[in-house]
Each structure stands twice: as C-alpha cells, then as structure tokens.
C-alpha cells in the first residue's frame, strides 16, 4: 500500500514538473498582465494581440508552409527509398539502412552546419529551397523508419503475385505495394509535420534571413528584448493545443489500426 502511494506520488511529481510550466503559460495566456504571476482578470486580449501581430502571423504561415512542403517531399522520397532499400540485395540493404539512419542519430547541429557549408561551397544563396532541403534531410529518415516495418509485414510474394497477374513493375508498385504500406506512409507524414513544425536549428542555419518561422521568430524576439512578449503566451498555448490535437489524431489512428 505504501509502495503504491510512493509510486503514485513519484509519477505525479514527474508529471507536474513536466507539465506545470506549460499549464502556467496556458492559464496566463488568458489575462492581460505582462508578468506571469499577477492575474489581472480573464481576457482574450493576448490572442487579439497575437492575431493582430503581422510578424507572428507571417511566421505562423511560413511554419505551416515549410512543414507541409517538406513533409510532402520527404514522404514521397522516403517511401520510394524504403521500398528501394527493402527490395535491394542483402548486403546493399544493410549499407543503405545504415546510411538512412545516420541523420536520426547524428546531432542536428552537425547536420545543420554541414548543410550550410555545402550550400556556401556550392555558392547557393539561402532561400526557401535550401530551407526545404534542410527540413527534408531532417525528416526523411523518419519516413523510411515508419514505412519499413509495413514492408516487412507484407507477404513476401505480394509483389511477385502482382507481376504474375500481368502488372508491370511500376503498376505493381502503385496498385499493390503503395496501398499496402499506406498506413506507414501516413504516420511517416505526420511525424514529418511535427518534426518540421518545431525545428529551430536546421531552420536557423538554412533559411534566408528575411524568412522566419515561429521558432526563429520566438528566438529572435527573446534574444533582442530579453523577455517574452505576452502575446507569445497565446501563441505557445495555440501551438500546444494544436500539437495535442495532432497527437490525439495519430493515437486514434493507431488505436484503430490495432483494433483492426
């Protein structure tokens, strides 16, 4: 009994440490007070301020734009890559598998710096495309990692069965393999979105300075003024809620898949 209580309280403590700051932010996003800690009455004013702030709105749009663009590119390339790796010869397969997983293990800062050096060496000016490449590099291994298990679950003769019935290799890919691994592709896509949304390091290194996303905007503002502008409390609340919805969606999909 004592053991149980101890275990429970330990768990609660950890959860409180983890979530208290976020909870605090959320609570204080509904008041006008500049300082956290002084409650000056309930209001949506910070939200109004946030939506009126053109810089924030632009950063938000940019963030969504780069997240969707990079996720689409990553998902397509990553899915094809996973299929390619899966059907390679055994030795090649091991090598390719290793290579695709390096970016996952590698420190993001290393990836970011090496990309920057590459672009500078090639004389490419930083623009949306360099940023897109940066995000694709960041997210593509996660697509491969989520599609691969689906391929491994396939009946090994599935692809051959399609060929046997008269499908060319490309039709077999489109009509059989891709539909079969679609759940893996979708979860890969969702992973890409979440990774891209909150990325700071790669974005900071590969973007054009006139292009800011939420993460670079927040960092920029705090670096300049030293303190968080109150409207950012509303923004973080919004992001948290969006992420929460996203998480629910993915989990719901997973639960459904398990049930099936």
């Amino acid at each position: 009994m004592v053991k149980k209580i101890l275990a429970r309280s330990y768990l609660s403590l950890i959860l409180i440490i983890m979530y208290a700051p976020i909870a605090l932010l959320i609570v204080y996003s509904f008041t006008e007070s500049t300082n956290i800690g002084t409650w000056s009455g309930f209001s949506f004013d910070l939200y109004r301020q946030m939506f009126a702030n053109e810089e924030i709105m632009e950063a938000l749009l940019n963030t969504i734009l780069i997240a969707i663009a990079s996720s689409v590119v990553s998902t397509i390339l990553g899915t094809l890559g996973a299929i390619g790796i899966f059907y390679s010869r055994r030795r090649m397969k091991r090598v390719l598998n290793g290579i695709t997983q390096i970016p996952v293990l590698n420190a993001e800062i290393v990836t970011a710096i090496s990309l920057t050096i590459l672009f500078v060496t090639l004389g490419i000016t930083f623009n949306f495309i360099t940023l897109l490449i940066g995000h694709v590099v960041l997210t593509i291994p996660f697509v491969v990692l989520s599609v691969m298990p689906k391929l491994q679950q396939l009946d090994p003769n599935m692809y051959e069965a399609a060929l046997d019935l008269g499908a060319t290799p490309s039709i077999a890919l489109r009509k059989v393999i891709i539909p079969e691994v679609l759940p893996g592709v979708l979860s890969g896509f969702l992973l890409c979105i979440t990774l891209s949304l909150d990325d700071y390091i790669i974005t900071a290194f590969t973007r054009n300075n006139s292009f800011s996303t939420l993460s670079t905007y927040v960092y920029g503002v705090t670096a300049k003024r030293g303190a968080l502008p109150p409207s950012l409390r509303a923004l973080t609340t919004l992001i948290t809620i969006l992420m929460f919805i996203f998480l629910l969606l993915t989990n719901f999909r997973k639960a459904k898949a398990v049930k099936n």
Binding site: D155, N157, M158, E160, A161, A162, D164, L165, V176, P179, E180, L182
Partner: peptide, 12 residues
C-alpha cells in the same frame, strides 16, 4: 499464373 504458398492475396 501462380498460386503462392501463403496465397499473397491483396488485403486492401
């Protein structure tokens, strides 16, 4: 045409 060992039907 082939009938495979584990059928290799298309579950989708």
């Amino acid at each position: 045409n082939t009938v495979f060992q584990r059928y290799a039907l298309f579950p989708h």
